[in-house]
Computed example of a mutant assay.
Amino acid sequence: MLKIIEVIQDANAKNCPLPALALALTLPDICSQIEYPNEKNVGYRYRNWYNNHVHKHEEFHCTLNTLNSYDKLNAIHEMETMLHKFNGYACYKLRCLLLHQGDAAMTGEIKYDNLYFNIHSGEETRTVSPTKQPDQPIEHLSINSKLLCDYLCTYAKKYYDEHPNKELFQKKILHG
């Protein structure tokens, strides 16, 4: 898994957002198989691992020190309300969308179930603006792929570092 993290970080550094994000979205798959070895439902494992190891630690990368106290409080409130929208459910849906539909997800906003994703690799943080529908809410999520990759790599590495049995992370690859 450490090699995968290294490759993701290299792809991000070389401004290759699609391969970096596609590979980063597999990290919760790897870690959740270790954390929940008897759970057969991949989505359940993935969502729970993300919520327990990434989502609870996320924070927006903005310079609050440059804001006055009123704007700082508003920015913190805005971040906190937006942050909870991108959770294990949304990350799992993004994983399914990107890994099963490829680079189609990188061309404008694309709907997957009740979520609209817009993936970008700019330096701005991702934002969320919910739109209410009569029957169910539709969420519009703008995803900063570099930031999401950083989160996934950071917390997958932390999970690896804290796990007592490193052998579980070693996958045997057959060379033909």
Rank of each mutant, 00 (worst) to 15 (best):
I5A: 09
V7M: 05
V7Y: 05
Q9V: 04
Q9K: 15
Q9A: 05
Q9R: 15
N12F: 07
A13N: 15
K14W: 04
N15K: 13
L18G: 01
P19S: 14
A22D: 03
A22M: 11
L25F: 09
T26E: 02
L27G: 05
P28I: 00
I30E: 08
C31D: 01
S32R: 04
S32H: 09
Q33K: 14
I34F: 09
Y36W: 07
P37F: 01
N38D: 14
V42I: 09
R45V: 01
R45Q: 07
R47C: 05
R47V: 03
N48K: 15
N48H: 12
N51K: 07
N52L: 12
H53M: 07
H53Y: 15
H53N: 15
K56E: 10
H57T: 02
E58M: 15
E59A: 11
F60C: 03
H61N: 11
T63D: 15
T66M: 06
N68L: 03
Y70L: 13
K72F: 06
N74F: 09
A75E: 15
H77Q: 13
E78Y: 13
M82D: 06
L83F: 06
H84M: 04
F86L: 12
F86H: 11
N87E: 06
N87F: 08
Y89P: 01
C91N: 11
C91K: 00
Y92E: 09
L94Q: 07
R95N: 05
L98V: 15
Q101H: 11
G102Q: 10
D103H: 14
D103A: 13
A104W: 05
A105K: 04
T107N: 13
T107K: 13
G108S: 08
G108F: 12
E109F: 09
I110S: 00
I110M: 04
K111D: 08
K111T: 12
K111P: 10
D113Q: 10
D113F: 09
N114G: 02
N114I: 00
N118Q: 11
H120E: 05
S121T: 10
G122H: 05
E123Y: 04
T125D: 14
R126W: 15
P130Y: 09
T131K: 14
T131M: 11
K132I: 07
Q133V: 01
D135R: 11
E139M: 12
E139K: 08
H140Y: 14
H140S: 11
S142C: 07
S142H: 13
S142I: 02
S145R: 01
S145Y: 07
S145I: 00
K146N: 15
K146A: 10
L147W: 03
D150G: 09
Y151N: 11
Y151C: 08
Y151W: 15
C153L: 10
C153Y: 08
Y155M: 07
Y155L: 07
K157T: 13
Y159T: 01
Y159N: 02
Y159H: 12
Y160F: 15
E162C: 11
E162G: 07
H163R: 04
P164M: 03
P164F: 06
P164A: 06
N165F: 08
E167T: 03
F169E: 03
K171T: 04
K172C: 01
K172I: 04
L174W: 03
L174I: 10
H175N: 08
H175T: 10
G176K: 08
